[in-house]
Design a binder for these strands. Structure first.
Length: 911
RNA sequence: GGCUUCGUAGCCCAACUGGUAGAGGCGGCGGGUUCAAAGCCCGCACGGUGCAGGUUCGAUUCCUGCCGAGGCCA
């Protein structure tokens, strides 16, 4: 019924404007919908129904984000295939959503687990795999163009300078300088190209739990043991697929300026990207191991403080450490180093940064501070992370809290290089101030000093201006079963090749059981699918290889994020078998991006960042027509619930509390009085509301109205079952306003009541405006007001005409579609109200002829006068001054000034 | 600790770019309808906007500080 044709299809009306309204599609959990889902969905539903009535082509789709961990864990316990449980959950979700009467175009429904969907997820992965980021052009391009530029000599042949995971980052390959690209051997060529790919294989340290046979997220590891089972967890390097999202850091940051998103979400994304400007500085080493580079490179955001750099610290994983162990300089304690670095490597970055007590070991290596010329020691400590900057820092205890702590602990010198304020009594001073103890920088402010120091370092050829990001490349491999397989195969040498488009999708194989294998070596689940693993060059289309050459499939799967990175595009053209989305459909619906995207703030960082990244790559490759996917974003607030709190702030489940008097609550068992607070719904507090129960008792329309009436859409607000009855009463009143309670027949008047007509126009205008700005709570209040006015008028014999009643049901219908249709049909409306037009309102009906104007004297309300609505300043002033009460109050005072705001008030300044 | 949103009636919330603090709902109280209750109908009350300052003719709205709550990141 709500099918929306695409451009070119029968029934498509190209004269209408388009509106693409997207809900964050749900993960269909076994528990079914919770009350948070319908909040956002009702909001978009009201807006979409309204937009349809206003004559828009509305794209309002729904689907399922259906790969994910819970289904897999359930499969491990029960042996039931995740597809089976997931399909069942989807059916349940669909049933529940349909009960709400949402106007989704169900002909566009799909799940991320559908083969003809994940086929294209794999295809997009390959497009990204086949791309590189041209830092000059600031955009992604096909890797074939890079190869051409190397071959033609247009671009110097070297490893990607931004690919830290390739040991030769930025360097020329052996022999390249002389002969260029052609003479290089295949392996070198390949490695160079791989270093540029936007999807690459990187070595990432993961939390490996041999007993569980899986890698764990940082949150799943507690004190070196698995949260589930308490098994030991080790940090282990693992070959993983990575996305070079860091190449897009600047674009992802800049794009935030062009979108209409909540400022908090923009701030979160910007913070996540974490752009910081500073300098990269090389400290030369006086006794570097021969194997290591003769200098140590650091990144710092505070080059202005370099005169206070009294020591250096490298991460325990820093390559220099290995070099030192092989060739220890005098003064180094090898066994202490080995022990320290080994222990540190088993701790996550988060744990390492959280440690209160600073630890570390002197490496024996000494460096030269280029500014002071003094020798400073190089230490290693876990508080420096290999994954940020260069994995090495210059430590400036005077201006950095962690460096200060470290220096105090190990008795290293501390030199202040920024003058703290006189009142400052802390340790490290990180604020603004003038430079001191800093030679030629003395007296300069922080910003100036930074700039001057970077220039100076440049002159000395030991430092350059550098932008650094907190954003890391995106780890895209999971050792799980229930995800998209990678469209990648390996030969015996371990070289990777893409699966040709015609051989997609690479289908997920069936497994006999889903339990991870106990293993010391990280081994993805798909490795158990021994038959599936084996393929040939011919089958998957590896070019330049014999067709019967054996190939092995990639056994990692994609993370849960993959499917949600581009589903909005598929909704534009979900049945397309030729492309991931048809060009025409994409150009039409995505013109200007998704017009409104509503979903929870919990996805404010990762999902939205990942989807934007994919979208930008696709845009650069000419596959989509916009740079940003979501032009307007909105987060619905959390629906919380009541909970009870003891004096010690511990929480009590709702069924263990009695209300002894109004607003007085007592814990039954102990008799202790408890405080009512709001908290997240949770099973343990027994305060979870099941939508099915609410619908059974009150109906879907009441549910919809209640959730929209609770408060502003973006606010978090508590569910209070007691309040629902108000909305049920409203619907009943609305019914009785126009229909006979017993017979259900219309009870209407033939002649319109002028007051009600006016009120109706105002209601139409108010509700329409409120829907546009997503202020559903006030829109509903306006409808309640109208019904209350109509009900009161009935006492005095007035009633709505058929025409008025029909218009009211048109206004009500987007909010309460079931009763809206019922009223419409009983009142004799033609067709369906959901296909009717939104009623017009007359602007002239919105204003009164005569209005009440407050008169203030010295800003205090003193009188009220009646004035014609259009009265100008002068007329209003005269009316105010003529008012008897005003006259009396300003008697004997000097009127200094009279402020008149036409239509609003008069303020007399008199003394 | 940083970023961010927000504190209005017993509760949930209105108040548009500063302009009469109150639209609406819940709950409470009173009245009507009724043999009675539920229901329905009508009516009523309650706060000066977390606290302290500032800007302004005028501040719930803008600014500063503090207190408290939520979200995100450390």
């Amino acid at each position: 019924m709500f099918r929306q044709p695409n451009p070119g299809e029968e029934g498509f009306d190209q004269d209408r404007p388009k509106f693409f309204c997207l809900d964050m599609f749900p993960y269909p959990s076994g528990a079914g919908l919770h009350v948070g889902h319908p909040e956002g969905y009702t909001a978009t539903d009201i807006l979409c129904r309204y937009k349809k009535m206003k004559g828009f082509n509305v794209l309002h789709p729904m689907g399922w984000d259906a790969f994910g961990l819970p289904a897999e864990q359930y499969a491990i316990q029960t042996g039931i295939h995740p597809a089976q449980t997931t399909r069942k959950s989807i059916d349940n979700f669909r049933r529940q959503l349909q009960r709400f009467g949402f106007c989704y175009d169900w002909s566009r429904e799909f799940g991320t687990i559908d083969e003809d969907y994940y086929k294209w997820t794999q295809w997009i992965f390959l497009r990204i795999y086949d791309s590189w980021y041209d830092t000059d052009a600031q955009r992604g391009r096909p890797i074939s163009e890079l190869e051409q530029e190397f071959a033609s000599g247009k671009r110097e042949v070297r490893y990607n300078p931004d690919a830290a995971e390739y040991a030769g980052a930025g360097e020329l390959p052996m022999g390249a300088a002389a002969g260029g690209w052609e003479p290089l051997d295949d392996e070198t060529k390949r490695t160079i190209l791989d270093s540029y790919r936007l999807a690459y294989v990187g070595n990432q340290t993961v939390n490996w739990c041999p007993k569980l046979g899986t890698a764990l997220a940082n949150e799943e590891v507690i004190d070196g043991r698995s949260e589930r089972g308490g098994f030991p967890v080790f940090r282990k390097p693992l070959s993983q697929w990575m996305f070079r999202i860091t190449s897009y850091a600047d674009r992802l940051l800049a794009g935030l300026e062009d979108v209409d998103w909540p400022t908090s979400t923009k701030a979160m994304q910007a913070q996540w990207i974490g752009r910081s400007e500073g300098a990269e500085i090389d400290f030369s080493l006086t006794n570097a191991p021969v194997m290591a580079k003769p200098s140590l490179r650091v990144f710092t955001t505070r080059p202005d403080t370099i005169f206070g750099a009294t020591y250096m610290v490298i991460a325990p994983e820093h390559p220099m450490v290995q070099a030192i162990l092989e060739e220890p300089p005098p003064g180094s304690d090898v066994s202490a180093l080995v022990e320290y670095c080994g222990a540190a490597s088993n701790r996550t970055d988060v744990e390492r940064q959280e440690s209160k007590e600073k630890t570390g070991v002197f490496t024996g290596v000494m460096a030269l501070n280029p500014a002071t010329g003094e020798q400073i020691p190089v230490w290693t400590s876990e508080y420096v992370l290999m994954s940020y900057g260069t994995g090495a820092i210059m430590a400036v205890p005077g201006q950095d809290e962690r460096d200060w702590e470290f220096a105090e602990k190990f008795d290293l010198p501390i030199v202040r290089t920024v003058q703290p304020p006189a009142a400052f009594d802390g340790k490290a001073y990180t604020g603004e101030g003038v430079a001191i103890n800093s030679g030629f920088l003395d007296g300069l402010g922080v910003a100036q000093a930074k700039s001057k120091m970077i220039d100076w370092l440049g002159e000395q050829s030991c430092g350059v201006r550098k932008v650094n990001y907190r954003l890391r490349d995106w780890l895209f491999s999971r050792q799980r079963y229930w995800g998209e397989p990678f469209p990648i195969v390996f030969d015996q040498r371990g070289w990777h090749y893409p699966v040709k488009a015609e051989a997609l999708p690479v289908k997920l194989p069936e497994l006999a059981d889903y339990a991870p294998e106990v293993s010391d070596e990280p081994k993805p689940l798909l490795a158990k699918a021994t038959e599936w693993l084996k393929t040939t060059a011919g089958e998957v289309g590896v070019s330049g290889r014999p067709a019967d050459q054996a190939m092995t499939r990639e056994t990692n799967t994609m993370p849960g994020w993959a499917g949600s990175c581009w589903y909005y595009l598929r909704f534009c053209d979900p049945k397309n078998a030729e492309r991931f989305v048809g060009k025409e459909a994409e150009a039409y619906w995505m013109d200007g991006g998704v017009d409104l995207y509503i979903g929870g703030a919990e996805h404010a960082v990762l999902h939205l960042l990942y989807a934007r990244f994919w979208h930008k790559v696709l845009f650069d490759l000419g596959e989509v027509s916009t740079d940003e996917p979501f032009s307007k974003l909105f987060h619905q607030g959390l629906i919380t619930s009541f909970a009870y709190q003891r004096k010690d702030k511990s929480l009590v489940a709702i069924d263990e509390v009695d209300e002894t008097a109004e607003d007085t609550y007592v814990e039954r068992e102990s008799g202790e009085s408890v405080k009512q607070i709001t908290a997240k719904m949770s099973k343990s507090l027994k305060n979870v509301i099941n939508p099915d129960d609410v619908i059974a008792e009150y109906g879907a329309d009441t549910f919809r109205l209640y959730e929209m009436y609770m408060g502003p859409l973006e606010a978090s607000k508590p569910w209070n079952t007691r309040d629902i009855s108000g909305l049920l009463r409203f619907l009943q009143r609305a019914w009785r306003l126009v229909l006979d309670e017993d017979t259900g027949e219309p009870m209407l008047s033939d002649t319109p009541d002028e007051t009600l007509e006016k009120k109706l126009h105002r209601t139409i205008a108010k509700v329409g405006g409120d829907i546009e700005r997503l202020a559903f709570n006030t829109g509903i209040a306006a409808m309640i007001e109208f019904v209350n006015a109509g009900t009161s008028a009935k006492e005095s014999g007035a009633a709505l005409t058929r025409d008025q009643a029909l218009r009211f049901s048109q206004v009500l219908a987007p909010f309460a579609p079931h009763i809206g249709e019922e009223l419409w049909s009983r009142l004799g409306g033609s067709g369906l109200v959901s296909q009717a037009y939104w009623p017009e309102h007359d602007e002239a009906m919105l204003t009164d002829d005569e209005i009440e104007i407050p008169v203030q004297i010295m800003g205090k309300l003193r009188a009220k006068i009646m004035a014609p609505a259009g009265a100008d300043q002068k007329a209003l002033e005269e009316l105010a001054m003529a008012d008897a009460q005003v006259k009396q109050l300003i008697e004997g005072k000097q009127v200094r000034k009279v402020i008149v705001v036409p239509g609003r008030l008069v303020n007399i300044v008199a003394q």
